[in-house]
Design a protein around this nucleic acid. Sequence first.
DNA 1: AGTAAAATCATGGAAAAAGGGGAGGGGTTT
DNA 2: AAACCCCTCCCCTTTTTCCATGATTTTACT
Lengths: 208, 208
Amino acid sequence: MNAITVFIVDDHFMVIEGIQALLLPENSIQVIGHASNTASCMSFLQHQQPDVMLLDINLGAESGIDLCTMVKKTYPQIMILALSTFNQFSFIDKMIDNGASGYLLKNAEGHEISEAIHTVIKGGTYLSKEVTETLKAVEEGKKDKPALTRREKEVLELIADGLTNQEIADKLFIALSTVDSHRKNLLAKFDVKNTASLIRLAARLQFI
Amino acid sequence: MNAITVFIVDDHFMVIEGIQALLLPENSIQVIGHASNTASCMSFLQHQQPDVMLLDINLGAESGIDLCTMVKKTYPQIMILALSTFNQFSFIDKMIDNGASGYLLKNAEGHEISEAIHTVIKGGTYLSKEVTETLKAVEEGKKDKPALTRREKEVLELIADGLTNQEIADKLFIALSTVDSHRKNLLAKFDVKNTASLIRLAARLQFI
DNA sequence: AGTAAAATCATGGAAAAAGGGGAGGGGTTT
DNA sequence: AAACCCCTCCCCTTTTTCCATGATTTTACT
């Protein structure tokens, strides 16, 4: 059986060296090259395609997420294993969406890398343990965000813009008392008791 | 002349391997060990002290910044070179404050590491080029942020926490009218006219 | 067509914030 | 010593928000 060929894309020289050192003792895996940016990666792939690609999601100014999409479009048979320091939902989600077969954190143990490579080559999906936990936490966390109605969002925005209830009423062509109602509902939904905490919480939850 | 001894602290196995691989050809530098957390680092230092320590600022759950302080307190002669993926002012600033002699980004070229090590061993300070630029940018950026006094920051935090002026006064053991004054000054400095816009702006400018 | 949710409006009162103006004491800088 | 900033405090007025309670009309969905 031939060794699995692996190509590494990372803008951190240290990491490329590290992965190579870690995979050296693995006879079933062979690192056939590496790149530190989009251009040199695509240029390499024109001549030779690995079985698995270890791809850092953060390539300095460039985006590993975009590169993932590009590679998958042209070479769908290459299995991509995302590599990242960030255990953040937005990244994980995007990479999986864009065709990655796994998400490996850089603090992975030595054996995890080869385990992940063997998993994805068989068509499986490999996620670091912490990553799985993050995905779960996000699912649960979604419940923490209050579900706002269209109008409530609108009013919230205007409050954050610094308008008073009267000004909001004028802008939306509704009565002062209506704005007051929406505002009360906002305070209730966010479970806060005044504007200051409302705005901070809304900001943290990315409503504004 | 003896080789410079180096100790590496990083929770990313790949990075440790990578640095070792990169420093291997350097005859003047010898890696004498590595650790991936605070405890094993301190325990190593009890038996042996390196000339230079490469210290990741982000050790998973632990903080490299705190470790830096600890090490410098007990072994002031060890030169510490901060290692990070993040080119962020707050980190850079804290590490330098806590006694680090340099700040190296992980996307450093191979030769940068040994260059940095040689610089700090001579008592100099080594900052990656991008880091220097960040520091400059922050200096300029400061002009956009209003300069708040100690007390104003304190009051701002408490407002954001949702406390009323009276509650803040009680907490800080000052009169209601004083809190009122600070609040008025905050509105003036941020050039806004009410709490909502104050909090949003403060959040965007990273005050809270 | 029926009903649940959302949006609309109202009244009245208490609490808090905003606006304006003034003032004294402590510390630092020039 | 004068100038300056910060922190402290006060008074008074107006505006705005917060709270309680209740009701009507749209809109959206089964």
